[in-house]
Amino acid sequence: MNETVLSLKQRFALSRFMRGEKPANGALTLNQRRIFILPTRQGGGFIVLIILLLLIALTYNNNLIYLLAFMLASVFFITILHTYQSLAGLVVKPLQTQAAFTGEKAGFSFSIQNPSDQERFDIQLKLETETLLDIPPHHHEKVLLFKSTKKRGKLQAGTLTVSSCYPLGLFRAWSPLRFKMEALVYPAPATVFSVFPESEGFEGENGQSKKGGDDFYGLQSYQPGDPIRQIHWKSYAKGQGLFSKHYGGNAVADLWLDYNQTPGHDVEQRLSHLCRWIIEAEKIGLHYGLILPNKKIPCNHGPSHQHACLEALALF
């Protein structure tokens, strides 16, 4: 933990209370520097109650009512400490981010750890969405919070507010935290699917790849129309029903998605189309590559390849 010393001016800057200090790299421990406490509306009501009790005590000159009022006033003081304690010591760590397409919500996951012996109740974590959780002693919870995206690129996590009103709800302790954490925002996929662009060796008309070739692909239940020579007779003989052998593999040609050959009026539209193509190509298992004016990603398939392509689009 790299705790820098704050200057007096920084210490009392309003943004510290609401937005948090400048983004941190790793885990943050909630301590007196980051936890702020103010009475809630109920806390205000409690003060009114105490004043009312004091008035009754005064008019009747009743020492026990005085004592009750003072006890509640002390409860009020003590609750500040207890509310502080409900957050103090918690360790919040940024975990992964979930990329999203523009307009959808990007996910940010955090781990929140309770290293103490006391259970923490009703800890609220709020980014744009919020969640409420209890953390047993020496435990940690993972939370996934979302933030809506407006434009492609990188989305900063912003301020994560951890707060709690436990135990009495008279005070709210909160801690605004900022992490160096950003989620990728891909372009929104085009709503209209346009035909894959033609490229060398690839003759897909509607995105269907041709099954065939030499590599055994697997067994599938027999469909009327499957060629007879592909029927797996061995299993039929065992009384397991009709299966046909499917082959695939090298017949799948490489699909090159080129920015310059993508329809669209402006950059965003073109990226949208590319994005849609990548999704569709991945869905049907094509080998595809991406050519951007500044980058070229060789053909491949698989989730990590798809991510690499979409990332290139996001950061274009």
Binding site: F216, L219, S235, K238, G239, Q240
Partner: peptide, 15 residues
Amino acid sequence: TSDILPADIIGSSVF
């Protein structure tokens, strides 16, 4: 192998 079936492993009912 690529064409092995569950029945090849656990056995099957044969008439």
